[in-house]
Design a protein around this nucleic acid. Structure first.
Lengths: 415, 415
DNA sequence: AGTATTTTTTCGAGGCTCGAAAAAATAGGG
DNA sequence: CCCTATTTTTTCGAGCCTCGAAAAAATACT
């Protein structure tokens, strides 16, 4: 059962709250932090003094503060970039990328590689990931004191504890415990996240006005993925990363999906499905492994030009997405939607049928008011989400730890 | 944003924790509470001493403790039944019921009435509810010191703040703010909950081994409802009670649903849909207002006897439920399911097609391992859920209040 | 009756937050 | 240039809260 609050938890939580307030606000003064957290000035003063002493926060240079107000000028607090570093690793189809991010959230180094993920063996895949991480960590050019956390995102299903990839369309391999492997290899805490969930995390960070407590991020790509935030929390399944919107059933017994089942939303709206329909192939035709972005752009161009099979393919995609969203809205109620990925550039071809379909569902009451936004490049979002996840872990678990391992041990003190 | 933890919160939360530990365990000793909450004996001693002084808890009579152990015998703490009372009101099709429950959770009085909810005006409906509550509260025979909370459950959609009924199949009226109305009328805090959500709350209470952190309660009745618990929390929509499983889309453009749309799960699995299919009426035939339980039992009997349209009707219901669950499992992963309601008695007719359908969906990997349980009488569950909800509110908001309205004002102190 | 054992209470220590007051740092006005 | 008003930040004592250790209470066993 949930456990009582010990006295030590109090300081721990308030420390975490101050750190998170600084991360969100950028350069808040102590007074601003007191206002947003509801804690007293004395408490904020004490906590931030501790955090500065420990090298986690720094006071921003007074030069920048252009306060035209009377009185003692506010002194902004900011995250000390040198307090820690994190790694964001993104593994997607035929592509592996890693970025080193300092504690303030700035990318300080990166590396990208093309692979052939579909044909690689289990060990090759693991070795590539370990190697790219090792190169970044051990790079002598890089003045990074210590990497405190690795976050790895992958297209596919991960387990709910963020330890392992369970299944992924980018490789025939299954059940690879990447988080455990990286932890063993480098002795650095690691997590394994779903790519679409990381998209959602990043969208919330980028535009908290639009993407606040409830929203949906849908990846329109070769497959269809979703990241879902409900009540301010990232939604995950009971055993896996969950939110497999692309594999909700659109038409029982319908078109053949890449997952081997029939009638999934993805089997109508994934790139391979649009391509299959545009070529007027059978719904039973085996999904192709990959369709290039260029080819998809060509399909979209033809669909915009003439009312042929290409336009019909996009219409079917919109219909599947619309009925899928309708069923989703029946469960969670309507929420703002972000359409992410290269195919989001063809959202103009998808939207009419999508809205028409939603209007026939439980979401229908508000079908006009549901707002869609598009973002054609998913990779930066995923990486940003990973970085945020990893940094937030450092904020809460390392710099505001529980009883065990009271921090401040080997960290360099600043000034 | 989330607010810092003040010092006063600490005691408040730990008080709430002790109360909730007593409610769950029945008659735990102080030592047991210390063990489950992780707080020290001293703290538990101090808090429980307060709670006893305030008349919220009592020490159980030593006579019952048959401890064959050496040492000072444990003295069990229990909820003082006289500390407060709550009202559970359940409004369903043509039926209104209310129960008075003491603080220990025992029903001390009840009243039930048959109504004609489908034809009643808005004011008649409200007046009936107010009147039945008034009769129970003002009953001179009843020695109830003070009703601290009213919880009202209704079949249909409520808002996410638990204030109002937004839409219900039992009445053509919409948007009735029952919670506000009852609060104004009696000056007692009230909430308005969805019936299926209350079923889920009660199932979790009754069988915490089976229904712990993640499970699904589905009401098989004239309509199809769902209560969903995920990660130990009751799931609700962003604006409404949410979880409208019955109105997920099974077949786009398919059978006519009671909600006016087409192809909803309910349009295949609701009583009216089974009845319609069993009579081999068109899928476009207007849903009938009500089918008696007796008639449904007759349908089920005939379905078991011969392989005719009745059996096919149940098969279609199972198929719709199965594909619906499959889509749900794509989002949340598989979880134990409770089938509740009179039609759960016909689950034997539904299950084969249901399992076959699930096997064709994302839930398919585990289709064999998904476990179903049935419970044919929903009303006691709903009432129990209401009572638990109301009592839990009293536990947390009244007996462990924040700064404002520090409790213990007019309550009778016990010995 | 005395001893061992277990539960519960008591008591002082240590932490944490809070409010009030003091200190610090600046702009504006004469 | 100095003084005052204003705003931010720190300091300090008070009040709670939880904790651990020890004491007290209540029973079974010998």
């Amino acid at each position: 059962m949930s456990v009582g609050i010990r006295h030590d938890d109090l300081r721990r939580r308030n420390r975490a709250m101050v750190i998170s307030a600084v991360r969100r606000a950028g350069q808040p003064s102590r007074t601003e932090i007191a206002a947003t957290t509801g804690l007293s000035h004395s408490t904020i003063s004490a906590i931030s003094s501790d955090l500065i002493q420990e090298g986690i926060l720094t006071e921003s240079k007074a030069s920048e503060t252009v306060s035209m107000k009377r009185g003692r000028p506010q002194v902004g607090l900011c995250l000390n970039p040198e307090a820690a570093a994190v790694l964001a690793v993104v593994l997607s189809l035929n592509f592996l990328s890693v970025a080193v991010i300092d504690y303030a959230g700035h990318v300080v180094a990166e590396e990208q590689r093309r692979l052939d993920t579909l044909t690689m063996s289990r060990d090759e895949l693991i070795d590539e990931c370990v190697a790219i991480v090792r190169r970044r960590i051990e790079d002598p050019d890089l003045d990074v004191q210590s990497v405190a956390r690795i976050a790895l995102a992958i297209q596919g299903i991960t387990d709910s504890h963020a330890r392992a990839m369970l299944w992924s369309p980018i490789t025939p391999q299954t059940n690879i415990a990447f988080a455990d492997i990286l932890e063993r290899e480098f002795g650095i805490p690691a997590i394994m996240e779903n790519d679409c969930n990381m998209m959602a995390v990043a969208l919330r960070w980028r535009d908290p006005d639009r993407y606040r407590d409830d929203f949906i991020a849908i990846l329109l790509s070769h497959g269809i993925g979703m990241g879902l935030v409900l009540k301010g929390e990232l939604f995950t399944g009971t055993h896996s990363s969950g939110g497999e919107f692309g594999h909700m059933i659109h038409r029982p017994g319908g078109a053949l999906c890449r997952c081997g089942r029939r009638g999934c939303v993805e089997a109508y709206a994934g790139n391979y499905a649009i391509w299959r329909n545009a070529r007027q192939l059978s719904e039973n035709a085996e999904p192709v492994a990959d369709v290039s972005d260029a080819e998809m752009r060509a399909l979209a161009a033809r669909a915009r030009q003439t009312d042929g099979p290409e336009r019909e393919a996009y219409r079917k995609a919109g219909e599947a997405l619309g009925f899928g969203l309708g069923s989703l809205f029946a469960l969670i109620d309507p929420a703002p939607v972000a359409m992410v990925g290269a195919s989001a550039a063809a959202f103009d071809l998808i939207e009419p049928a999508l809205r028409e379909a939603i209007a026939q569902t439980a979401g229908g009451q508000h079908s006009g008011s549901i707002s869609f936004d598009t973002e054609t490049n998913e990779l930066p979002l995923i990486r940003e989400g990973c970085a945020l996840r990893a940094l937030s872990f450092v904020d809460q678990e390392i710099f505001a730890p529980g009883i065990q391992g009271k921090s401040g041990m080997n960290r360099k003190h600043v000034a």
